[in-house]
Design a protein around this nucleic acid. Structure first.
Lengths: 189, 189
DNA sequence: ATATTAATTTGATGATAATCAAATTAATTA
DNA sequence: TAATTAATTTGATTATCATCAAATTAATAT
């Protein structure tokens, strides 16, 4: 039973933040040679014990080290599992794509629409830039009825709701394979 | 010809720092689905273009993304190589140990010696704590001559230079396998 | 019981870095 | 050539975080 966890962004972030400090990397290095107490680490790194304690707690939250009490010492050890798991996850591209799952993928399109549409839904201008034009063409495209044959007159009326230059719009739609024409009839693709 | 690079701490640190920000992780996620321009990313993340540009430059320095100029766009793509290389390196324990290579491994010992030795090199007290006692015993140990047989009288003289309680020292040295005895003769191990 | 000792926690300080707005650069279009 | 546009750079502001010192906690040793 392989539990192929999904990869929450918070966990990954905690992992990287834990390792994004030079002294914490050195601690990892020292622990890779064997368990150490706080004061041993503090002496080797020339840092205060409180500082090292703080670093260890951050590493601990990320699951990278663990502590075992021994007398009044805390003996810290490296958790190699966590390192290996994380690096293995990083290799999977589909995991990476999931990092963006809560971002707003259509935000750009909405921005373009907002910039180019008047309040009543007509185009202020037909954008010269290909990328923005495409956003508007897709906007028209989704308004076309499925499985309907439009006469040329009908399609012109339809397109005129967006911009007076319906002829250009018609051509663009066909050029970009969002619409097809045959024998004077037009339909959505 | 496999160039199994050693792993400079600066490079690792740059790598982790580059990935230790939530928005940069999201950028990685978005780029994992395909190339994007700065303004597309900015819209999706609801950030200013200048901020995204800044993030991209940090990712770029770490070799995680690359830009290709296209018109006045910069189209950024994910460099999966770098991600894979780094995660593979993380799996090697010997690489980790190397992270500590410039740290001061003997600093703790020196601190203990400093705390327990008088200026003329004698022990103020014999430490009760095992760990510190061991440091002092090793200090004595390295002063013993190699391949020399000490009579009991000689070893007592030798140890008395460190502390009046030479009998305890003698016992500790033997208990900790730093010295051996047979037929009233002592030698360094 | 009281001292000592290691670790942690708390509070304060300084350094680093994320963010935005404005200015600048570089490329394209009119 | 002038105007537009995307990207970058610069400067200022704010938030985060590493660090230390001092106080506290928990365990051991006298």
């Amino acid at each position: 039973m392989e539990t192929e966890m999904n990869l929450p962004i918070e966990e990954l972030l905690a992992f990287f933040k834990a390792l994004s400090d030079a002294n914490r990397l050195k601690i990892i290095g020292l622990l890779a040679t064997g368990p150490h107490t706080v004061e041993q680490l503090a002496a080797s790194l020339n840092l205060g014990a409180s500082t090292v304690s703080h670093h260890l707690s951050r590493l601990s939250e990320a699951g990278l080290v663990s502590a075992r009490a021994e007398g009044y010492y805390s003996v810290y050890s490296l958790q190699t599992d966590q390192l290996e798991q994380m690096s293995r996850r990083l290799l999977k591209r589909e995991n990476l794509a999931r990092l963006a799952q809560n971002t707003d993928l259509e935000a750009y399109d909405r921005k373009v629409l907002h910039d180019f549409l008047t309040p009543d839904g007509r185009f202020k201008t037909i954008p010269a830039q290909e990328k923005k034009l495409l956003v508007l063409l897709r906007h028209i495209h989704q308004a076309l009825e499925d499985n309907r044959q439009y006469t040329e007159k009908e399609i012109n009326e339809f397109l005129k709701r967006y911009h007076d230059d319906f002829a250009s719009l018609r051509r663009y739609m066909i050029d970009h394979k969002l619409m097809a024409r045959e024998n004077g009839l037009y339909w959505k693709i």
